[in-house]
Design a binder for these strands. Structure first.
Length: 587
RNA sequence: GCACCCGUAGCUCAGCUGGAUAGAGCGCUGCCCUCCGAAGGCAGAGGUCUCGCGUUCGAAUCGCGACGGGUGCACCA
């Protein structure tokens, strides 16, 4: 997806960026003319949609931002700037308002011009070169390979995947990665549980005591084990089968997880195994690197405060001086018996990411991992000497409801609702969209009945419906032998049309902001608003027949079809990022 | 006890990282609707942005301190 037709990239998609460029060059002219001092930082100069449409099309805060450093009256700067801007034929009016806002009104042609750009680009409309090909690693899901994915994983999976797509769309070179926690004690538990299912397959009665996984999903593994080993492992001591079963069961679980991800259309670029870090010198290498930086020492930690653990006693162990990189306390990398803590392979894994040459790292964790954020950031900061930023996004809990009642059961897993349960109920598109209609750090209520409702308060339906509506009009137009034409668009001047067109023009800017902040939910909210503007225009057509899309005059119809085609392209682009299929027809 | 996240309309949530009179959906109230083009439309009421101090031309947004809610605080992964 890196080689895009130049013609698309060359055309300016972002009208707000264009006008900002104009503002900046005018400010430069003022410097040349001596109206403004030479040494000014324009980084904070913004060109934005105004909060109130009555104020104009765009507003810039340039005068207010520069007033202090330039030691000048903001309104005076604004007036000087207005004079220069108005000379550009794209600007119809430039009015100073309030404390020094400069409200700009743009020519309708300029707005209308977004239509051919969107129509030509199609689902690539808004694609940006902002990321400049920087290599970003997005690590997400990374669930223990001990069972099927559950709802909590689902949110992380959807969020990570949409974020990866968003960054790709914004011009980053993205790698989607899954870290397989196949090195620790939980895999022993898995192997023992699989062994019980194996015994069961061999006709024995077994009991799942505490510390084993009772879920049905291991039944098949037991059967597969019987096929492979017959009864040769029955009554054998653990030491004879544990290693083999760890491997076997982990592979089976990863197949299960891959199948779960597949249900949501998620394809990882890379799976990284924790196990591969052991016995290969990679952990030692990473710790040595920290040691060489003077960040490893032998010491004794203070007891945890406020918890009064009864079994706590001071012990000397190998510690990482994470406090030098912003953590609250130093963290152990080795246990007192000399073996690695779980943190050590995590350090090695992130060291490996740094060494693979990524410019940025992003980890998606569940909210219950909030406690690891600081230490992971400290590790990456130390290992990369501050060169590689690590952003960690925590996804909050998902609360499931059915008709307003909390919903907790799962047939397959016994104790939790699986990803498959959810997708089977509502489908991948609804699952994905709903999970993205909230900021990642806000809890999410997911009501099975509500998300399938066909009404305005269901954003999934509302956005899909807009896409289908456009499609239905285009189909009808096709039957009438009329098609979109993007040459002259001067008939599109109605308020409702201009509102819609201006919303379209915001898309490239919004996309870049969403990518900059790693917030895919902004795309979902934008699509809802865009769909709302389209539906509003449609409804206006009941009264004002001149805004209906299909008119007797085929020239005018062609222009309107171009407009809704542009909306369709934008919806497709946005839904594509969210990983939701735009539908052509409501059933 | 400490750290992180959150606190915006009756409810569920946005609010573009400091801008103008704080928005949407639901719910409520009142009108309208059988439409190329079903799964609705328009309007209205509803706010001390938890509270207090501070930073400045300007704060829901930034800082500090309270208060309230969530999560986490091991040699577990």
């Amino acid at each position: 997806m890196l080689n895009r037709p130049q013609s698309i990239l060359d055309r300016s998609m972002n009208l707000f960026a264009d006008i900002r460029t104009l503002v900046l060059s005018s400010l430069n002219d003022m410097q040349t003319a001596g109206t403004l001092p030479a040494d000014l930082d324009f980084a904070n100069v913004a060109v934005e949609p105004p909060r109130d449409a009555l104020h104009g099309d765009m507003a810039t805060n340039a005068a207010m931002v520069l007033a202090k450093p330039a030691r000048a009256n903001p309104r005076a700067i604004a007036e000087g700037l207005a004079e220069l801007l108005i000379a550009d034929d794209r600007i119809i009016s430039a009015d100073v308002a309030g404390p020094g806002f400069l409200n700009l009104r743009l020519s309708p042609e300029l707005w209308q011009n977004v239509i051919p750009v969107a129509v030509t680009a199609g689902a690539d409309f808004g694609r940006s070169s902002m990321g400049a090909g920087l290599k970003v690693n997005v690590e997400y899901v990374s669930a223990n390979p001990t069972g099927p994915l559950h709802v909590g994983h689902t949110r992380g999976a959807v969020f990570g995947d949409a974020l990866a797509s968003l960054l790709d769309f914004a011009g980053y070179n993205v790698t989607r990665e899954y870290y397989i926690n196949d090195g620790g004690a939980q895999v022993d538990v898995l192997a023992r549980s699989a062994y019980l299912r194996y015994l069961e397959a061999n006709g024995q009665q077994v009991e799942f005591v505490d510390g084993t996984y009772p879920g049905d999903y291991l039944v098949d593994v037991g059967v597969a084990l019987k096929e492979k080993y017959g009864d040769s492992l029955v009554d054998k001591p653990e030491s004879e089968w544990l290693a083999d079963l760890r491997l076997f069961a982990t592979e089976q679980m990863m197949d299960l997880i891959r199948a779960d991800l597949d249900l949501l259309g998620i394809k990882m670029d890379s799976f990284f195994s924790e196990k591969s870090l052991y016995g290969t010198g990679l952990i030692e290498g990473a710790i040595n690197d920290l040691d060489a930086k003077g960040l490893i020492y032998e010491g004794v930690l203070e007891p945890p405060k406020g918890k009064e653990p009864d079994d706590w006693e001071p012990r000397e162990q190998t510690l990482f001086k994470s406090t030098e990189h912003g953590d609250d306390v130093d963290r152990p990398v080795k246990k007192s018996d000399g073996s690695w803590t779980y943190f050590a392979p995590d350090i090695a894994y992130h060291f490996d990411k740094v060494q693979r040459g990524f410019d940025q790292l992003i980890d998606i964790f569940g909210a219950d991992h909030g406690g690891y954020v600081k230490r992971m950031k400290a590790a990456v900061s130390a290992l990369s000497e501050g060169a590689v930023p690590l952003d960690i996004k925590l996804t909050q809990l998902v609360k499931l409801y059915k008709d307003g009642e909390p919903f907790k059961m799962s047939k397959r897993a016994g104790t939790f609702v699986t990803l498959r349960d959810v997708v089977d109920q509502v489908g991948p598109d609804v699952t994905r969209f709903v999970m993205l209609t909230r900021k990642n750090d806000a809890p999410l209520d997911f009501d099975f009945a509500k998300v399938q409702e066909q009404s305005k308060d269901n954003p999934v339906f509302y956005v899909q419906y807009a896409h289908a509506r456009i499609n239905s009009v285009l189909r009808k137009a096709d039957e009438l032998g009329v098609s979109a034409q993007t040459g002259d668009l001067s008939s599109l001047t109605h308020d409702g049309e201009m509102t819609l067109i201006k919303k379209l023009a915001e898309w490239p800017r919004l996309l870049e902001l969403a990518a900059k902040h790693n917030e895919p939910h902004r795309v979902a909210f934008y699509l809802y608003e865009l769909a709302g503007d389209l539906h509003a225009l449609w409804n206006m057509g009941k009264e004002a027949h001149e805004v209906r899309f299909l008119q007797d005059d085929t020239t005018i119809t062609g222009q309107k079809l171009a407009m809704i085609s542009a909306v369709k392209a934008t919806l497709a682009a946005g839904l594509g990022i969210l990983g939701v299929t735009p539908i052509d027809e409501m059933r």
